[in-house]
């Protein structure tokens, strides 16, 4: 069939868009977690994750995480350009396996904590933090 100019433009446009629209290969939080745990099942209930419901400024968001008995806790922010945030490895002198810090959140998203427990099992906790655009001078 004869292609009209319009049809040509539409099809080539669509073709371009489908190629251009592909994001550069970027790992998601889930990808990173799977890599960390080797795809192991993630239990729930062992981690306490403390985040604000609304972050007054996404540049500095206080986060606290606790998992008694954990060897390490890794934090992720699933909506950040790079989802990994930090890993806390607890040494022999650490009595309580908890840590607090302040993180950057680019937008409303989930903060996730993944803990490797002493017996090698894995745990996860997740919390949504709303990040607002601020107001004046915000």
């Amino acid at each position: 069939m004869e292609l009209t100019r319009r049809q040509m433009l539409v099809t080539s446009g669509a073709a371009l868009a489908s190629v251009a629209g592909l994001p550069a290969f970027a790992a998601t939080a889930d990808d990173m977690i799977a890599e960390l745990t080797g795809g192991a099942a993630l239990g729930e209930g062992a981690i306490t994750l403390d985040t604000p419901e609304i972050a007054e400024n996404g540049n500095t968001v206080p986060v606290a995480v606790s998992a008694p008995g954990a060897k390490s806790i890794t934090l992720y922010a699933d909506g950040n350009p790079v989802p990994s945030v930090a890993t806390f490895n607890f040494g022999p002198l650490n009595p309580s396996q908890n840590a607090s810090t302040r993180i950057r959140l680019a937008r409303t998203q989930n903060v996730m904590a993944v803990a490797e427990m002493a017996d090698g099992s894995w745990q996860m906790a997740k919390a949504e933090v709303k990040v607002t655009i601020g107001g004046c001078g915000g």
Binding site: T60, A77, A86, N94, R104
Partner: peptide, 10 residues
């Protein structure tokens, strides 16, 4: 404690 920091730390 031994912490690995990524750019998302403030």
């Amino acid at each position: 404690i031994d912490v690995t920091l990524e750019p998302a730390i403030s």
